[in-house]
Each structure stands twice: as structure tokens, then as C-alpha cells.
Design a protein around this nucleic acid. Structure first.
Length: 484
RNA sequence: CGGGGAGUAGCGCAGCCUGGUUAGCGCGCCUGCCUUGGGAGCAGGAGGUCGUCGGUUCAAAUCCGAUCUCCCCGACCA
């Protein structure tokens, strides 16, 4: 079959208009729909099931690494937010306020949480008294409201869903270790399950979380060459413990402030999935998080309910028993061709077709979403082959994304080339930077590119290099990109 | 928040400039027949407070004002 032929015709090709392509995919595959309130969306069942799959895997990993779940209030008293100055400055412009309860005006306004450091800090102060109470390792799954001026489904919505971990430790070293452990947990999750390669590292001062001592992040390249932050892990130092008075008596009977971290991933990951893997035919969902991994389409010809459907059911049930998520599409009102396009657009990794010719030959036709490859397989060995296919598709999707990332990561010889690359090709620019925020600002003004990440494993090594813009000595290798 | 564009049936659009019977078209939807290996065909049918509120007028989808939402480009920002 021709790889160039476009079977799915109702989506604007992404080469024509990337933004439009993105929004159309989301609506037409029923991931989400716009709600009648600015910046808010409804996550529809198909989109929500992807989020649930993400959730259950992340939740498992968080618990395996020693954390437990809890739940804190949606509202935060204004006074709590004001305690950490940087935190307040960072979030004040985008906080939604509750001013009334029924018809009575509240004495103190309540913030709808933009993040929960403040309310959790307040509780930790009550709970933590001794070094024996530490570490506190708590995570919560919650909704968050940030009154953003520019919104986009999944990438930046007024309300979104996430998990936020909040931990408290005895020592600075322990907090730093936790911060980096979570960062690598996120990286491993995104690469293994979402099949999206990421660059991990530290944020510059300009880009760090409001109130953090250090912010680390994983950044991925979307297929238009722009960067998307996929998750963050903050070392909060003692910024919050000092203002919320979270103190404990240490092993030497001295009062100390705890060292804290916070970290999160959100429903933005669903948007990343669309933009990192999708093509002109629609979504491509990696098998490990796809709502359905396999769709079985019986070809309805003649007395198909008697001759074909039972075999299709048998195949579907056999795969289900092996733990494969299978959808049998036996709807009568659609033709096979229609179903092929529909499930292709929805990004199901593997399609099985079974018709009279296949019954005759004892085979099933398989079509991979990642490559479009069509292959007839013997029914006898089908289960085993399907499982192999799924793991191969997962691997191949990661490799294709990695190849794209590598091909679009540029090293430039001077600032003129830097500007030229940002204007034409986009992608990541891997280069050296002096460490000065003013210089970083200037680069942003000139090119719209910001520092996405300072890879931590090499951040101190190459001290003989010079800043790409100002030529001052540089210690930091950094990645620049235009970001979402 | 600044500049630009848009909102008419589930989706995509025409009509608006130049106000005037019953607001159209394609796809989708419903019923029936017939079909089904890459988005079938025929026949019949349903579906609209023209985003919302107000104004002008004998009369408003159409003119005026406000407002809400979406898209693009900036500013801001996980």
C-alpha cells in the first residue's frame, strides 16, 4: 500500500497549519471539547482514558518510590499565599479568587489553588516536630486553576489535572537527592510509556519555579520543532519551611527548618502525545498507554454474522485473555473503509482485519499505525505476534521521535547562525551560555528562544567554552528553543 | 492585556455590503431498500431563538452599540 496516500481526509495536514491540525485532531478524535468558559475544556472519554492510563502508571511509580497519596483543600487563604514573596509574585497574576460564600462577603479572600505549596506548608508545620517524623513523602492528584491569558487544549488550560508531590527532609542533600530521583522517574516514565525522548536538566534563574531554590525539568521536542516542558521537579530549599515555620528537633537536639521539594506532571502530557507522535492522518498513540491497543474489524460481506463475526470474536477474546486491550468494531452502520480511517485517526497502534479470504486461508491481516505496514498472519500464532508487534511499535515510536529530536538539535558556530536557525528550522540549539540573566533576556528578545534546560550531568565540565552571544567564559552547556 | 480575524443545523460553509414572503448548500443524523477488503448508492425525512443582550426601523441573520467565546501574531506565563 502506498505510504503517501492520505486515507484520513478530514484533518488539515500539519504541514499546512500546525495549530489548526492540533486543535482539529483533539476535537475530531474526541479527546476533548471546548467548554463554554474561556480557556476551559471538557476531557471526553477517549481523552480521559489516556489520562487514566498515564495516571495509573505514574501513581504506581510514585508509590513504588516510597510516597503515599493524600488530599488537601482546593482553597487557600490569601494570607498563606502571601508568605513566600517570590511565590506570590509568580502566581498572583493568575490566581482565581473566591470572595463570597453565598451572598456573604468573606473576611479573607480564598485563592483557588494554583499549586499547593502554601496550604501543604501550613499543614506540615503542624505535623512535623522531630527528625523521626521525616521524611514526609506525600503526593496528591488534584485539579489546579491558573487564570492564563492564552490557552490551548491540554497544553495550557485554565483548569487542569495533575499530580503534585510535596516532600520534607532532614537535610539539604536528601532534598536534592529526592528532587533528582523524581526527575529521573519522570524521564523514565515519559520515554518508556509515552515513547517521547526528553532532555532533562536544571532551569535557569529566569525560568525557575516561583519560590524554588532550584527547578529541574524534562523538555521534549514537538514535531513542529518547539519545546514542551513535560514535568518539573523543584528543590524548594528552606524557602517555604522558613515562612511556614516548619521546624523539627534534629538528632543533636537543635531546632532546624526542613528541606522541601515539590514536583508534578499534568494533563499537558496528553497534548504532548498528540504533538510528538501525530501525523496527517491523526493520532498515533504508543501501545503502552493507548485506550485500545488493537482494533479488530470484521469485513462484513454476505452472511458475515455467521461466517466471520464468531471468528473475530474468538480472536478478540483470545487477545483479551493475554492482557491486550482490544476493541472489536462490529458496528453494522459503517463500511470497513470508514472504520479503517476512523481508528487510524484515533491512533490505535494495531488493526486486525478479518474477512472471507482470511477465514479461507486461516489468516488475519494486520496493519501497523506507526509504519502503515500490512501483513497477513496465521491465526494459530496470532497472539504471540500481536504482543511482539505492540512492543515493536512502542520501541519504533520512541526511536522515530528520538531520531527527529536528534536531527533537529543544532550546534551553531556563532550568534548569527543561532538567529538563522531559530528563524528557519527551529528545534533545539545546544550551545554555551555565560550564566547571566540579562544575556538570556537579550537572546529571547532577538530570537524568541529561551533556555529550556541546563543538562545537569555536564553542567560544570567544559569551562573553556564561551557564551554564544557575549563571548564571556561559560560553564554551562544549555539547550535553547522556542517553547510552548 | 495590545493588534488582526471569526461565530448562521452536529461539522464545514453561503447569505450580510444594498434590511423585506417559508434562512440555503455539502457532509453528518433518522427511516427503508441495497451494499460492505480504504470514508458506497438510491428514495424519503428530521433538525435553526442566525453566540448573547440591547438599540435603530413598519420590518433585523443583514445596520449600530455592548458583551461572551474561538483562532492567528505579540506581551505575559507552566
Amino acid at each position: 500500500m502506498s505510504q503517501n496516500e492520505r486515507f484520513v481526509k478530514k484533518i488539515t495536514p500539519k504541514s499546512v497549519d500546525f495549530s489548526r491540525w492540533y486543535v482539529e485532531i483533539i476535537q475530531k478524535t474526541e479527546l476533548a471539547d471546548y467548554a463554554p468558559i474561556k480557556g476551559m475544556m471538557v476531557i471526553r472519554p477517549y481523552g480521559y482514558s489516556i489520562w487514566e492510563n498515564i495516571q495509573s502508571i505514574v501513581d504506581k511509580r510514585i508509590k513504588e518510590s516510597g510516597h503515599t497519596n493524600a488530599y488537601f483543600p482546593l482553597f487557600i487563604p490569601e494570607g498563606f499565599l502571601q508568605k513566600e514573596t517570590e511565590h506570590l509574585k509568580g502566581f498572583a497574576p493568575e490566581v482565581a479568587w473566591v470572595t463570597h460564600g453565598g451572598s456573604d462577603e468573606l473576611e479573607e479572600r480564598l485563592a483557588v489553588r494554583p499549586t499547593s505549596e502554601a496550604i501543604i506548608g501550613n499543614m506540615y508545620a503542624k505535623w512535623i516536630k522531630s527528625w523521626r517524623d521525616l521524611p514526609v513523602l506525600i503526593n496528591q492528584w488534584a485539579n489546579i486553576v491558573r487564570w492564563e491569558k492564552v490557552t490551548r487544549p491540554f497544553l495550557r488550560t485554565t483548569e487542569f489535572l495533575w499530580q503534585e508531590g510535596h516532600t520534607a527532609h532532614e537535610t539539604s542533600e536528601e532534598a536534592q537527592e529526592e528532587t533528582l530521583m523524581i526527575l529521573s522517574l519522570y524521564k523514565e516514565f515519559v520515554e518508556t510509556e509515552l515513547a517521547i525522548p526528553v532532555i532533562s536538566g536544571m532551569k535557569s534563574e529566569r525560568e525557575k519555579f516561583a519560590g524554588a531554590m532550584k527547578t529541574y525539568a524534562i523538555e521534549a521536542m514537538m514535531s513542529d520543532g518547539k519545546a514542551l516542558q513535560m514535568g518539573t521537579s523543584h528543590n524548594l530549599g528552606q524557602h517555604f519551611s522558613k515562612v511556614f515555620n516548619i521546624r523539627f528537633e534534629d538528632r543533636n537536639q537543635k531546632l532546624q527548618y526542613v528541606w522541601q521539594t515539590s514536583w508534578g506532571v499534568s494533563t499537558r502530557l496528553v497534548g504532548a502525545l498528540v504533538m510528538a507522535h501525530g501525523d496527517d492522518s491523526g493520532l498515533k498513540i504508543p501501545p503502552r498507554i493507548a485506550p485500545f491497543q488493537v482494533v479488530v474489524i470484521p469485513i462484513a460481506i454476505g452472511d458475515w454474522k455467521k461466517n466471520i463475526l464468531p471468528k473475530a470474536q474468538e480472536i478478540a477474546n483470545g487477545l483479551k485473555k493475554k492482557g491486550v486491550r482490544v476493541k472489536l468494531d462490529d458496528r453494522e452502520e459503517f463500511t470497513p473503509g470508514w472504520k479503517f480511517s476512523e481508528w487510524e485517526m484515533r491512533g490505535i497502534p494495531l488493526r486486525l482485519e478479518i474477512g472471507p479470504k482470511d477465514i479461507e486461508k486461516g489468516q488475519v491481516v494486520t496493519v501497523r499505525r506507526d509504519t502503515g505496514q500490512k501483513e497477513a498472519l496465521a491465526q494459530a500464532s496470532l497472539d504471540k505476534k500481536v504482543i511482539e508487534f505492540l512492543s515493536d511499535i512502542q520501541k519504533n515510536m520512541f526511536e522515530m521521535a528520538l531520531k527527529f529530536q536528534e536531527e533537529n538539535t543544532h550546534e551553531v558556530k556563532d550568534y548569527a547562525e543561532f538567529k538563522a536557525v531559530m528563524e528557519s528550522k527551529r528545534g533545539f540549539i545546544k550551545t554555551f551560555w555565560c550564566g547571566d540573566t540579562a544575556c538570556e533576556e537579550k537572546i529571547k528578545d532577538d530570537t524568541m528562544a529561551t533556555i529550556r534546560v541546563i543538562p545537569h550531568d555536564i553542567e560544570k565540565k567544559k569551562n573553556s567554552r564561551k557564551c554564544i552571544r557575549c563571548q564571556k567564559p561559560s560553564e554551562s552547556l544549555v539547550y535553547f528553543a522556542k517553547a510552548y
